[in-house]
Amino acid sequence: MSETARPTIGAVVLTMNDRPVEFPQALASLLAQEGVDLDVVVVGNGCTPDQVPPGVRTVTLGENVGIPEGRNVGAREARGEYIFFFDNDALLPSTDTLARLAALLERKPDAAYAQPRICDPTTGETLRRWVPRLRAGDPERGGTVTVMAEGVVMIRRTAFDAVGGWPGHFFLFHEGIDLAWRLWNQGHTGHYAPEIIVNHPATDPARHATFYRLSARNRVWLARRALPAPLAPLNLAVWMLLTLTRVRTRSALRASFDGFREGLRGGHGERSPMTWRTVARLSFAGRPPIV
């Protein structure tokens, strides 16, 4: 991109027409962005999108195909050298947010993706799961990261296409780890930019009825798809230990182990393990892929 060219960004937003207040506000903040050429695509996941302003293109899916596959559909339609994935209940509090993220990726050609700091709009809180590294106690510490919070992230188009996009069959949960690992395996890195703020309500992922089952199933799929054979059982052993430590109710624990067994039965898709060089790079960056 030349010094005078404006970055081109394809923004992908999913909807199920279930957020009549938040969704229009999210789109308004997106369309207010300055200093970029923006192409916004709204994907109706099992619905025809409502409340879509002029100038925004839409895709209607006859059924809910899940978040990662819905985003893949949107990414195939959206035009731009960068793709910005944006949750439909998030807000861009500044009109230069996208321009700053694109400028960051322009300055860091090794980075395939850039994640801003996500904050609750009322409390200013940044949840630990939004901080894409192990030591999440200080959300204002930026730098190179090995995973991502997939709901608000900008990804370089060429890198995204080269690895085949999101793992669509995951439906929900952990697709960001899978994508980040594949990007790293192609020699890229990721960057967390806490100085760039995006607002998002601090919700609990366990509000989804399928959270424990799908989270466990996708953990198994992730290990079976992406890790060298000796590391997969180590990764899953760490996950089981953490599950036993963190899950408080018997029903949630039962759902977790149902998902674990479902993952072991198959369905993880094509196996493409990362190289040992990638294992070393991830470990050196602060997150060995057994955690």
Rank of each mutant, 00 (worst) to 15 (best):
S2N: 08
S2V: 05
T4K: 02
A5H: 05
G10F: 05
V13Q: 09
M16I: 12
N17W: 11
N17Y: 12
E22Q: 15
Q25L: 12
A26I: 02
E34L: 01
V42M: 12
V42F: 12
V43Q: 13
C47V: 15
T48E: 15
T48V: 15
P49I: 07
D50S: 11
V52P: 03
P54N: 06
V56D: 08
L61T: 08
G62R: 04
N64C: 14
P68S: 12
P68A: 10
G70P: 01
R71W: 11
R71G: 09
A75V: 13
R76T: 11
E77Q: 13
R79E: 13
G80E: 05
G80N: 06
F85N: 05
F85Y: 03
F86W: 02
D89H: 07
L91N: 03
L91R: 12
L92T: 01
L92S: 03
P93D: 01
P93W: 02
T95S: 10
A99P: 04
A99W: 10
A103S: 11
L104H: 06
L105I: 02
E106R: 10
E106C: 05
R107V: 00
K108Y: 02
K108A: 07
P109W: 06
A114S: 05
P116A: 11
P116T: 12
R117P: 02
I118G: 06
D120S: 03
G124Q: 09
R128T: 14
R129F: 15
V131Q: 03
P132E: 07
A136N: 15
A136C: 15
R141N: 07
G143K: 06
T144L: 05
V145N: 00
A149Y: 15
V152S: 04
M154Q: 04
R157Q: 08
T158G: 13
T158N: 13
A162D: 14
W166P: 00
L172I: 13
L179W: 09
W184A: 04
Q186I: 00
Q186L: 03
T189W: 00
G190N: 00
H191E: 00
Y192C: 01
Y192W: 03
V198F: 01
N199T: 03
T203E: 14
H208M: 13
T210N: 14
Y212G: 09
R213M: 09
V220I: 07
L222P: 02
A226D: 13
P228R: 00
A229Q: 09
P230I: 08
L236S: 04
W239M: 05
L242D: 12
T245Q: 14
V247E: 13
T249F: 07
S251T: 14
S251K: 14
L253I: 03
S256R: 11
F260K: 01
F260Q: 01
E262Q: 08
E262G: 08
R265F: 03
G266N: 06
G267F: 05
G269E: 06
E270Q: 05
S272K: 11
W276K: 02
S283P: 09
G286E: 14
P288V: 07
V291D: 10
